[in-house]
Computed example of a mutant assay.
Amino acid sequence: MSFQSRFPFADTERLIRASNQAWELDRAFGHLQGRDLIEVAFDRYGPKLTLVSSFGAEAAVLLHLASEVSRHIAVTFIDTGRLFGETLRYRDALADRLGLSDVRTIKPEPRAVKSADPDLLLFSRDANLCCYVRKVEPLKRALQPFDAWLSGRKRFQGGERHHLPAIEAADGRVKFNPLAKWTPDDIEAHFVKYGLPRHPLVADGFLSIGCMPCTDRVAPGEDARAGRWRGQDKTECGIHTL
């Protein structure tokens, strides 16, 4: 049984509705990016829109763009219980810097963690299940009040993201990818132009930052996401394959 088939999906009616909305929106606004696309999402969905952020290496760019549209956009952050302390402190500092008024920290169900990962070594036995318990299931709960969400994924990150559309459907919701077409130079230029603070681990060679046990430094010349689940045939945690 595959990882995805273990778990239920949204009801068929909601899936169809979201797919139709995403198709129509992408046809009308798929040429937009950055702040312009965030404005479309906010105008269309308002309080039913959330920005899902890991507060990782490049997260400040999307969060800054969103804050320019509205500082009241709900921001959803999954605290898996295995994150770097630096990430938690960066979340607090960046939210304060940008004036974000609605950052929601979601955690996995304690009983599910205790049952699936009693020795905290599940990541080494079944990384997909670990990600599901600690990230995917909490996000599914967190997204329940929303009809649409913003993601910071980019095409240059490779793998399944290479052909990332600006707007898509995901688990019965419309998903906007305002940075899909941005390049590494675009990201860097935005950091510099607006003086955005960097995640403290970036200077230490961590260019894509997730849970502590499954995040490694990236060697010069390696892909930025090479340090995620190093040595495993795994490139996504699962929250972007709902």
Rank of each mutant, 00 (worst) to 15 (best):
L129M: 11
N128S: 15
D102I: 11
G172D: 02
G99D: 04
G99V: 15
D171T: 06
R153F: 03
E109C: 15
K114E: 14
K114Q: 12
K154N: 08
L100C: 13
A112W: 06
V174G: 01
A116N: 08
A166K: 00
H162V: 15
A166F: 02
V174K: 02
L129W: 07
L150W: 01
V113H: 01
V113L: 03
K107F: 15
T87D: 02
A142Y: 00
V133Q: 07
R153T: 07
R111Y: 13
G159R: 08
Q157D: 14
L122T: 02
C130H: 00
D102M: 12
D119Y: 05
L122H: 03
P138W: 03
L98R: 05
R111W: 14
R104E: 08
A116V: 11
N128A: 15
A93D: 14
L164C: 04
R104V: 11
R89F: 07
G172C: 05
A142Q: 03
P165T: 11
L120C: 11
V174H: 01
V113A: 03
K154P: 01
L98M: 13
L100V: 14
C130Q: 00
E109Y: 13
D171S: 08
Q157C: 04
L139T: 11
D102T: 12
P145Y: 07
N128L: 12
R155L: 03
V174N: 01
R153D: 11
P118I: 13
K135D: 01
G172L: 03
D147V: 01
R91V: 05
A116G: 08
L121M: 15
P165Q: 07
R91C: 08
V174L: 03
A112M: 10
S151L: 04
E137P: 01
V136Y: 04
N128Y: 12
K154W: 00
I106D: 01
N128I: 09
C130W: 00
A170F: 08
K107R: 15
L122K: 02
R97E: 14
A166I: 01
K135N: 01
P145H: 03
E168F: 09
S124E: 08
D92T: 13
D102F: 13
D92W: 12
L88F: 03
D119W: 06
L98Q: 06
S115F: 14
Y90H: 09
A112L: 14
P110D: 04
L143S: 00
L121R: 12
A166T: 03
S115K: 15
A127G: 06
R134H: 08
L122V: 04
I106M: 05
